[in-house]
Design a protein around this nucleic acid. Structure first.
Lengths: 334, 334
DNA sequence: TTGTATGCGTTATCAT
DNA sequence: ATGATAACGCATACAA
């Protein structure tokens, strides 16, 4: 900028005015300055600008695994919304480790990002000293944190599970099992609890059959096989997220089991598998959008109490919820 | 930092030394300073540090669509490699528009990112004035740019297509069509050209049947239907990337066609579809890793001539490459 | 071992 | 309409 000023025989302040389109510059001086800028290829150093103004025009997204389609769709939405608002997005992965998450968050706060969208790893308390002390607005996504209320966007897990169970029951299923992901995850636990609640509320028979992860194809195959061979065999299973659904599908294929299935999370090609998989769909794009919306409200000075937004889920009915013909005999109960 | 200095009765320089673990600080002074730091919750302002040092410890990734699994896997790999090297990653999407890409790149250069990994939109010439003038190292991924040579990581498209064709031929297919994505994409054109070359080299019969995109399920269904009803019907098709593969699968299902298929790009559940889909796999993780490796070599002062790295592809044989029984009659040719 | 002065490139304040 | 100067928060060079 100093170079430009010297070359154009003006002060740096005038150059600054031109660059930032501030008023108070004569037409011809502006032309002259612009000429010099183009000629020597000047580009403003945003680092210095940031230092002076205090706003980085940057927000950050911290997730567990950027390659997981659920998170990458959230990421795409967050980037888009940020870009629309002239902000850049730093993405970071904590790889599911609370320790790494703290390191990552500290790094981002040192950078003075304007705000954070975080899928919290583990059950981190909301009062993370480093974060809360910095005053950086933060919106949690997909799972809440403990402690004092924070802005949070989650999806309606109980509603999603309920729609899954009710769909299966409507199709004649009575003995339904639940395959959740690792109980370490809040979402996994919440879905399990919802399952138990609905199961009881509908008065479904028997002790609820539930297995929490982590699951692999190898662990799932014998499990499903056993459940389908018991005295009172299950006729359907609900899988707790996309990972589990995929593994369960592989396991069923491996063992050659035929049973009802409703999966949590939609996935590409769910409709091309035989039978097409009925799923509980949560819309990652909307979740990401909503989170950014809330974040920018805070950045613009919204001081209202922290709010938790629960996004609705949608049951996408395909075929896998039906009662397989081979199991229909058992349906003839009261 | 000044606050800490005042509180601890030392100079800012001493605080700086403590924060950066520089030697030359007495044990007890360090303790005292650390105490103050913890007490008042001081966090170093990296923006100022950057301004002084000139390095932002940040690289950026520019892609077309962060939600596309191919790019999100590259993104995950790039983030991971960056994090290992103490760098943060800014991700940005140009949404396939060269115009937007320029805006995005300018923004990143204003931020003085240390380096760029870019999936170029369109056929942008390498000599983008803003980028090349800034001297920011840049590695192109997935498709090359025109003009003077640049560091580039692409995958072996001709090899991938050849393995697909040869596999189909080995399974008895003779009349094979190619469904490429939009010819605007370099990869789409390169794969098409490779297909034509192999087709001719193997002396396959007839004029090569090729259709470039953009394709939809609706456009694909009649096309495939027509091709399979001609006097000399095709028995197999090669799809040019994951998008086309998905649409083609849907179209086939819709029209009820049975034909051989090899898809470009592996995808989740390819093995659960009936028949399981044989694919040409390019490893996005390796591609991302390699790109970052090259970028950091440049950042560390590597001045060697620009190099283009061609990553190998791998044919994952499943079932869809076989000659369907219904078409086997036609196989009895010389 | 510790401190002082200076500068990074920009914007804000207050002049002229 | 334009400019001089301070300040942002830190690191660097040099001094004590």
């Amino acid at each position: 900028m100093a170079d430009v000023a010297a070359e154009a025989h003006v002060s740096v302040k005038t150059v600054s005015r031109v660059v930032n389109r501030e008023p108070g510059v004569r037409r011809d001086t502006e032309q002259r300055v612009r000429g010099v800028i183009d000629r020597i290829g000047f580009m403003r150093h945003d680092g210095a600008r940031i230092l002076r103004q205090g706003r980085t025009q940057t927000i950050a997204l911290v997730v567990e695994d950027l390659a997981n389609p659920f998170y990458s769709q959230i990421g795409a939405a967050v980037e888009r919304e940020a870009r629309i608002r002239q902000h850049q997005l730093i993405t970071a992965s904590a790889e599911g480790s609370p320790t790494r998450e703290r390191v990552v968050l500290e790094g981002l706060i040192n950078r003075r990002v304007d705000g954070l969208v975080v899928v919290p790893a583990g059950e981190r308390p909301a009062t993370d000293p480093t974060v809360s002390a910095s005053g950086t607005p933060i919106v949690y996504v997909d799972r809440p944190v403990r402690g004092e209320p924070c802005d949070t966007v989650i999806s309606d897990n109980p509603g999603g599970v309920r729609s899954a169970v009710e769909h299966l029951v409507a199709n004649g299923h009575r003995r339904i099992a639940f395959l959740g992901d690792d109980a370490e995850f809040w979402t996994a636990r919440q879905r399990r609890e919802a399952f138990v609640a609905i199961h009881d509320a509908l008065g479904l028979p028997g002790d609820t059959r539930i297995a929490m992860g982590p699951h692999t194809v190898e662990s799932l195959a014998p499990r499903l096989d056993a459940w389908s061979r018991e005295r009172t065999p299950i006729t359907a299973v609900i899988t707790g997220n996309n990972r589990v659904t995929l593994n369960a599908l592989h396991a069923m294929r491996q063992v050659g089991i035929e049973m009802g299935l409703v999966g949590y999370d939609d996935f590409e090609l769910a409709d091309l598998i035989e039978p097409a998989v009925t799923v509980v769909h949560q819309d990652p794009t909307s979740i990401g959008q909503k989170a950014v919306l809330q974040l920018f409200a805070r950045l613009l000075g919204d001081e209202s109490p922290a709010q938790t937004v629960v996004m609705p889920t949608r049951l996408i009915v395909r075929e896998s919820g039906r009662l397989p013909a081979s199991l229909r005999a058992r349906k003839a109960l009261p």
